[in-house]
Amino acid sequence: MPLVNGKVFHPQWSTHHQPTAAGTMTGVCRVWDRSAGPPIGLDGPGPNVLQAHGVPCRVQELHSLGDSTGQAAGQEITQRRYLVTVPIDTPVWFKAGARGHQIEITRVTQGGDPMLKGRRFDVAQVLTGSEAWERDLICVDNQTQNEAGADEG
């Protein structure tokens, strides 16, 4: 039997479920705007490009998206891809690429991986959709140059 109004989703479906998605975000991050540099894989951005802090997040490694190992300037580089999710209403208009945003994990909850704190992820893709519970960001972890204990502030 067809639906009376022909609608599969209630108009507030995503809004209703966004708190559930946010409840899965057990990490905390800050967001850097790297449009002014330095490019990805180099030193961390300065405090003047901090766009958001205290942002709830969830971090998950993506095994199927083509991790890579290679050489650049005589140095071995290993990269891994991660899905980083933040609330859909995070006040950042995310940009991807060499001059895009960078996510730095500042806190993980008890039981979370302590090695995650301080890691930086360069935003490679910003995923969008007509129904969204969270902001999905495909990020790159440059494991060769990604060390915890970077600038605090």
Score class of each variant (00 low, 15 high):
Met1Asn: 10
Met1Cys: 12
Pro2Arg: 10
Leu3Cys: 10
Val4Lys: 09
Val8Cys: 13
Val8Ile: 14
His10Val: 14
His10Arg: 15
Pro11Lys: 08
Trp13Glu: 14
Trp13His: 15
Trp13Pro: 08
Ser14Phe: 08
Ser14His: 11
Gln18Gly: 05
Thr20Met: 15
Ala22His: 15
Ala22Leu: 15
Gly23Ile: 01
Gly23Gln: 01
Met25Trp: 04
Thr26Ser: 05
Thr26Glu: 00
Gly27Ile: 00
Val28His: 09
Asp33Arg: 01
Arg34Tyr: 02
Arg34Gln: 04
Pro38Tyr: 01
Pro38Asp: 00
Pro38Cys: 07
Pro39Val: 15
Pro39Lys: 08
Pro39His: 04
Ile40Phe: 09
Ile40Ala: 11
Ile40Leu: 13
Ile40His: 11
Gly41Arg: 14
Leu42Asp: 10
Leu42Glu: 13
Asp43Trp: 05
Gly44Val: 10
Gly46Gln: 08
Asn48Arg: 11
Val49Phe: 00
Gln51Ala: 10
His53Asp: 10
His53Arg: 14
Val55Leu: 02
Val55His: 01
Pro56Tyr: 07
Pro56Gly: 08
Val59Ile: 13
Glu61Asn: 11
His63Phe: 12
His63Met: 05
Ser64Glu: 14
Gly66Phe: 04
Gly66Arg: 04
Thr69Arg: 10
Thr69Pro: 01
Ala72Thr: 07
Gly74Asp: 12
Glu76Gln: 15
Ile77Tyr: 10
Ile77Gly: 07
Arg80Met: 08
Arg80Asp: 01
Arg80Cys: 05
Arg81Trp: 05
Tyr82Glu: 02
Leu83Cys: 04
Val86His: 00
Val86Ser: 02
Pro91Thr: 14
Trp93Cys: 05
Lys95Asp: 04
Gly97Met: 05
Gln102Arg: 03
Ile105Thr: 01
Ile105Arg: 00
Thr106His: 06
Arg107Asp: 02
Val108Ala: 09
Gln110Thr: 06
Gln110Ile: 02
Gln110Leu: 12
Pro114Phe: 01
Met115Ser: 14
Met115Phe: 14
Lys117Ala: 10
Arg120Gln: 07
Arg120Pro: 01
Asp122Val: 05
Val123Asn: 00
Ala124Pro: 06
Val126Gly: 03
Thr128Tyr: 04
Gly129Gln: 07
Ala132Pro: 03
Glu134Pro: 04
Glu134His: 08
Asp136Lys: 15
Leu137Asn: 03
Ile138Tyr: 06
Val140His: 04
Asn142His: 13
Asn142Ala: 06
Thr144Cys: 10
Gln145Glu: 14
Asn146Tyr: 01
Gly149Ile: 10
Ala150Cys: 10
